[in-house]
Amino acid sequence: MTVRPAAPLAPATAAPSAEIVLPPARSPAAIALRRGLSHGGFLIGAGIVGIIVLAALAAPLIAPHDPYAQDVSRRLIPPFWHAKGSAEHWLGTDKLGRDYLSRLIYGSQISLLIGLSAALISGVIGTALGVLAGYYGGRVDAVVSYVVTTRLALPVVLVALAMASLVGGSLKVVVLVLGLLLWDRFAVVTRAATRQVRAQDFVAAAKAAGFGPVRILAQEILPNILNALIVVATLEMAHAILLEAALSFLGLGVQPPLPSWGLMIAEGKPYMFFQPWVITIPGVALLVLVLGINLLGDGVRDITAPEGRN
């Protein structure tokens, strides 16, 4: 038996005013899209991240010069807004005469690569821990909480530096070290989200239907904590990008001649008193990228929040 409240009883004679008007049906995706388009922070964040991702992907096409090509006769040319700027090098050149704009564009590949891979590794570790703790509770929860507390007590920058130094700093090592260190927030957030979802009726129904824990975790729990997961992933991406820059700045992260933004700031530091733009340009690039990712994450959180809650 079906009940259809909107169907008029006598279609031919019923006055239009007697019809029950249902709100137009919208899919969750359509609602999210509508909210996204009216959320300023989300739009700005998506715009910034979109442009930087495009620049990273199209780097070989849009970079005006080879980022590694040195030219000692054209060292430390200032950017275009200076009187001594050059039309050939919009953002000037570094101490080895390498084009700064080209290095900046290629540097975005490094930041994005490290942010994405570190967030992926730490996301897998943290989500596994958090979901297990949230779903099983009790002893499992206690053990996971203990592991998270222990991890939080270790000073991240120091431990990352020490590990990178022992293995030898490189892009791969930075990704691994950060991936293995930054899973704490993933674990904390997915644990809380899983506890909420676990209390829902559909999980009880799946249990009653005789489904095993693997299937319940994969099909009932994971899809429902995905929004929370995306928000943490953006935060941790931003965190990893900032940490990579710091490690590279201290000389134990990405190694020269790779154009990591943190490394560019380290290489520019001896010249910053007379050519301040050598540290300003990569610094602003970092700031803008991290700001964009954070705005995107905050936006996703607001947009996916249930109606009326922000």
């Binding site: 710091a246 540290i279 610094g283 700031l287 991290v290 700001l291 905050d298």
Partner: peptide, 22 residues
């Protein structure tokens, strides 16, 4: 506060030196 979370601390330090010391 959003800006504060996005600022690389070592770069912020260098920028402070440029402004207030240099």
């Amino acid at each position: 506060s959003v800006l504060g979370q996005a600022m690389p601390s070592f770069w912020f330090g260098l920028t402070l030196i440029l402004i207030f010391s240099v």
